[in-house]
Design a protein around this nucleic acid. Structure first.
Length: 427
RNA sequence: GGGGAGAUACCAGAGCGGUCAAAUGGGGCGGACUGUAAAUCCGCUGCUUCGGCUACGAAGGUUCGAAUCCUUCUCUCCCCA
């Protein structure tokens, strides 16, 4: 199965330029996807692009992962309704290093001819002067052409306007493609469907400047079945960095996928082949409550991103949090084991003296810890029956807790709702 | 430089002198049901020592009383030059 067929059956393909598949079928091709360092970690939204590169490499092609040291300084207007704030160079540099490190984990950088490569567009832009740029790049593309792009049109039609800086973004990205085409023989650029306009500016630029031929392919924007944004939870984006999103939370995110979405995601985010996936689907349809798809999905991605050991830990934590194990189970564990079990869960420290003096529940939740942002909210949630201490529902917001709630003389387990656990460490 | 429109809670958006902590919708959070799903239903959605306090771009002013009226300022958008 070739690259395009692979993406097609997985439901990942969005748009493909005519002739692309023929070009790829001729043999090993080089292609790239760009990642802008807007934060110091990638998030699950980037996984589609990462998987695309993985498939590209598995199909025998040579993938380039481009980190946008330069483009990150400009700001991509695609899909943005308002002008973005520029990041400082320090922040950008820090982000760049972090993103590079993450990308390194997913691709094979040592597989001979088609080893992956990492490039940074800052390398070819840092000495590119403004005058050179407007003469060598700007001259080949008309403003009329640039204005016709969706990303630009939307902003001109909207009521927020757009700076010249963001307007030029497509040229900067277009030149990236040209550079990689010229120097690394990259004949295809891939990306999310929102990147189509930018990518095509690149192929157009290559054609006009050097009469060269280059291709484009974009992938589906991942959305949830209900149309809402993919990759968000109560606490924000789901990051690949374990400091930002713990492996346990990461695992939970995937496990909580809806049935409908799971069928789509298992194709996009795992490498299992069609027969395996279809067999699981049949099994899933027969007994949806076993959530076989969600489990397989969560397992595969968690291992790819965080490794086997972290996955095992996430499973153990999950078993305790959602299994039939009672709270007494903690008594059988050592302090280290308890901490390990709760390692993926937010935790707070509380001086023992506070508990000895007796602490009001809303103080405990909102003042001594930041499980709730305010006492008012803690009280409201308690009134709605949404708070538990050691798995026991808190009856009223006036309850006072003392050392009698301690587990192992050291811990208190708090829950906000059913799914959100917090560990309070008392010492 | 000239003219116009506007700035309200997380977002959209009503309110146009008191009854406004501010309609309505969305989002979010919690509950019930369930499979840690979807759909549905219900509750909550500024802070609080529960007496109040701080809020409708900012600062002043008018008034017994202002999100609502006046002045100045800041910012945004649109049109013209």
């Amino acid at each position: 199965m070739n690259f395009v067929e692979e993406l097609t059956w997985r439901g990942m393909l969005h748009t493909i330029m005519p002739g692309t598949e023929e070009m790829l079928n001729k043999g090993m091709a080089s292609g790239y996807i760009g990642f802008d360092p807007t934060a110091d970690s990638l998030h699950v939204g980037h996984l589609t692009q990462i998987m695309t590169l993985i498939h590209f490499q598995r199909a025998g092609h040579k993938p380039f992962a481009l980190v946008g040291g330069a483009t990150g300084m400009v700001g991509d207007p695609s899909g943005k309704s308002a002008e973005r704030n520029l990041l400082s160079e320090d922040v950008l540099q820090h982000n760049l290093e972090a993103v590079k490190a993450q990308l390194t984990r997913f691709l094979d950088f040592d597989s001979g001819m088609n080893s992956a490569e990492m490039v940074n567009n800052y390398d070819w832009f840092k000495n590119f002067t403004f005058l050179d740029f407007i003469r060598d790049v700007g001259k080949h593309i008309t403003v009329n052409y640039m204005m016709a792009k969706d990303s630009v049109k939307k902003r001109l039609e909207g009521d927020t306007g757009m700076s010249f800086t963001e307007f030029t973004y497509q040229l900067v990205q277009g030149y990236d493609f040209y550079y990689l085409w010229k120097h690394h023989n990259c004949t295809i650029q891939m990306g999310g469907s929102d990147q189509w306009g930018n990518i095509v500016t690149g192929t157009e630029f290559i054609r006009r400047k050097d009469a060269g031929e280059a291709f484009a392919l974009t992938t589906q924007l991942i959305k949830k079945a209900d149309g809402t944004k993919f990759g968000k939870t109560e606490s924000g984006a789901v990051w690949l960095d374990s400091e930002r999103t713990s492996p346990y939370q990461f695992y939970q995110f995937w496990l909580n996928t809806t049935d409908l979405d799971a069928k789509a995601y298992i194709r996009i985010f795992t490498l299992y082949d069609r027969a395996v996936i279809e067999a699981w689907e049949a099994e899933h349809d027969a007994a949806p409550h076993t959530r076989i798809l969600q489990k397989a999905l969560a397992k595969d991605i968690t291992i790819r991103v965080h490794g086997e050991a972290q996955y095992e830990k996430a499973i153990k934590s999950t078993d305790f949090m959602f299994g039939s194990v009672g709270i007494e189970f903690l008594n059988e564990l050592s302090n280290e084991e308890v901490l390990e079990l709760f390692s993926g869960v937010p935790n707070f420290n509380l001086p023992l003296a506070d508990l000895q003096a007796g602490v009001n529940i809303s103080d405990l939740l909102a003042v001594k810890t930041s499980i709730f942002p305010s006492k008012g909210e803690a009280k409201k949630t308690i009134a709605g029956g949404g708070v538990s201490i050691n798995r026991e529902k808190v009856a009223t917001a006036d309850d006072v807790y003392s050392t009698s709630v301690l587990i192992n003389n050291k811990f208190v387990v708090a829950q906000k709702g059913k799914k959100n656990y917090f560990l309070i460490i008392v010492e």
